[in-house]
Amino acid sequence: MYRPFMLVMFLLEWLVILASVNVIRSANAAVSDYAWANIRRVNQEGPYLGIVVPNSFEMSPLLQSPSFVPHDKLPYIDVAGRRFRIGKVENKRVIVVMTGLSMLNAGVSTELLLSLFKIKGILHIGIAENANPQLQIGDVTIPQYWAHTGLWNWQRYGDGPEDKLSLESNGDYTRSVGYLELSDFNSNVKDQNLLNNVWYQPEEVFPVDGYPEIRQHAFWIPVNELYFSLAEKLEGIKLEGCLNSTCLPRRPLVTRVERGISANVFVDNAAYREFVYTKFNATAIDMESAAIALVCLQQRTPFLTIRALSDLAGGGSSTSNEAAIFTPLAAHNAVVVLLKFISLLNP
């Protein structure tokens, strides 16, 4: 009687364990068993370069390029609403993912890419608005630093730069980065500046090699030094300067710049463009790059961003935003520079 009883108890324990496993699998249903099997298979052939692209019109020139060769047996894996495309570019193994618009989508997609696959570096491409009046539409910029400029502490009416911000004494906010005084752009109502000031804030980051729940702070995130140094060799590339019958004043160029900024804002405003260029020496303005930079900083992964300028933020000589015309040209030029950069990388 004793041995059958022990056998029954043993079987019951295993049933409980199996039930728990099924609950865990159900809770993580976004990654199916089939997807996990393919991810393991792909990782056996890694590591890969991760190529992160915001939108389909920016990704299409890459996928249509003869330089992109899909994996012959496993061209893609779908996970959590994202499609991870497996293949080679310039004979280098790559995984390409489209994020969708905005900081949230860019951050989530990059985190998934780094968590699921063996990635040795991230290359991010796309179009951007331009804040630097010395550059033109079609130019491709490679910033050395990125910052998220959409994290604000918005000061209440009546307070000034000398007044502490709410929760500043707790260490949650700071006045070290700088601020935008909205009345500077509303001179007729300077004495009634109800919107007051917004103070830019650094992000909280939790690096993988740090202590859990012990935050660090970062505002300007540098790209990888080796990638940025290698990008100097791109500055002589010939880029496309005409779209159909519309040509730019000069042939676009590739240039390394000091800074780019990101926020969930399409900046079609000349006054704000002039402010960020004067305040931050920013050139490229977009909605995704800083999110990717922050994830790579926390994951200690090398990254580089290549952004082609599609318009002068707030408009140049045109009365409408130029991006509606020149987005295809800018997206094409960004991909041309990406392909050349990958060709320069060691195998």
Rank of each mutant, 00 (worst) to 15 (best):
K88P: 01
Y76I: 02
K73Y: 09
I86N: 06
A106C: 06
V79A: 03
E111D: 09
V97W: 09
L104V: 07
S65Q: 07
R41E: 14
N38L: 10
M59Y: 14
N91H: 12
V97P: 03
I77N: 01
Q44S: 04
N55S: 11
N38F: 12
L74F: 12
D72C: 09
P61R: 05
L74Y: 12
M98N: 10
K92F: 07
V108Q: 10
F68I: 02
G81T: 12
G100I: 06
S109D: 05
M59E: 12
S102P: 01
L101K: 07
L49V: 05
V53F: 03
E58T: 11
V69D: 05
E90A: 11
L74P: 00
S109Q: 07
Y48F: 15
S67T: 06
K92Y: 06
L112G: 03
G81V: 07
S56W: 04
F84C: 02
A80F: 11
R85E: 08
R82E: 05
T99G: 08
N55E: 15
S56D: 15
W36T: 06
V96M: 07
S60L: 13
L101A: 04
T99I: 08
I51K: 00
E90R: 09
I51A: 01
K73R: 12
F68L: 02
S65H: 09
P61N: 08
V53D: 02
I39V: 15
T99V: 09
I95A: 10
M59K: 14
N43W: 02
V94M: 01
V94A: 02
P47K: 04
A106I: 11
S102I: 08
L63Q: 10
L104N: 03
S60E: 15
G46K: 00
I39K: 07
R41H: 11
L63W: 04
E58V: 13
A106R: 08
S109K: 08
P75Q: 10
L104K: 15
T99N: 06
Y48E: 02
N91E: 15
S67R: 09
D72E: 09
I86V: 11
P61T: 10
L62T: 09
S67M: 06
L49C: 02
G87H: 05
L74W: 05
V79S: 01
A80K: 13
Y48R: 00
Q44N: 12
Y76P: 00
Y76R: 03
